[in-house]
Design a protein around this nucleic acid. Structure first.
Lengths: 127, 127
DNA sequence: CATTATAATGCAAATCTTTGCAATTGCGAT
DNA sequence: ATCGCAATTGCAAAGATTTGCATTATAATG
């Protein structure tokens, strides 16, 4: 592994961003700052960063996967399929489950961003 | 909503399949049995079925999302990022967490297939 | 049975993403 | 400083998926 300028650029881009970005949004952002960069380079760099664990990818129920910098602390989300509202789940709600599974299955779990879909209070009434 | 032949075909295809299929694999299978069917029709039908809850989509860590018939019972998986091995997680390991979250956040959770990534016992040693 | 509203489909174009291969570049070893 | 290996990149083509719009088919209604 080597010091790649594409990787750097992507990390910076994600760093400035508080929300999640799709791969295409990332490509666009990076392309703005370095138009010479080839699409395939960006997509491959993104792949690389995910494999290295520097970037986290998750499906938030939009058509496409979204990316973010891997944070220090795990965090999780509830996504309402009715109104699209997103609720943050405190990690201590999830952490015990994770360590249980690790114990029972002799696993070291890397997933640090769970996304659960469902219906929030309001939208349950509507449906 | 209406009785769509594309929908039927997709449901049958998934029914005969014990493992998960990518959208493209589904397109190929359906295309074999009804070559006249347009790709966009298949992709749109698949979308529809997911929205109707008849089909479940999940990211198993391959490049693409995979689809399966929505089962009666939730089931979950551990996926090893080292060797790719997949372990079934008993639902009673997960169910308590789900009902807790539903209580605490006033949510009705629909997600019925959790996928957690990590490293199995063997691959932890290697890494 | 005819009519109408709406859902599903086909088609073609656009878009997004991946892939193979050749050329380049960075990094460690000499 | 140079050499050589392996990683990164560019390019072009292929592949996969989405979209807009016109057309067709279905189901409900009168």
């Amino acid at each position: 592994m080597r010091n790649s300028s594409a990787d750097q650029l992507i990390l910076e881009t994600l760093g400035k961003q508080k929300s999640h970005l799709t791969s295409h949004q990332i490509y666009e952002a990076v392309h703005l700052r370095l138009p010479a960069l080839n699409p395939s380079t960006v997509y491959r760099a993104l792949d690389r960063l995910v494999n290295q664990g520097k970037v986290t990818v998750s499906d938030m129920g939009l058509g496409a996967a979204v990316f973010e910098l891997t944070g220090e602390k795990p965090h999780h989300h509830l996504v309402c399929q009715g109104c699209g509202h997103i609720t943050l789940i405190a990690d201590d709600q999830i952490a015990p489950l994770i360590s249980n599974l690790e114990k029972n299955y002799h696993y070291k779990i890397k997933t640090n961003h769970l996304v659960l879909f469902g219906f929030c209070e309001k939208c349950q009434d509507t449906a």
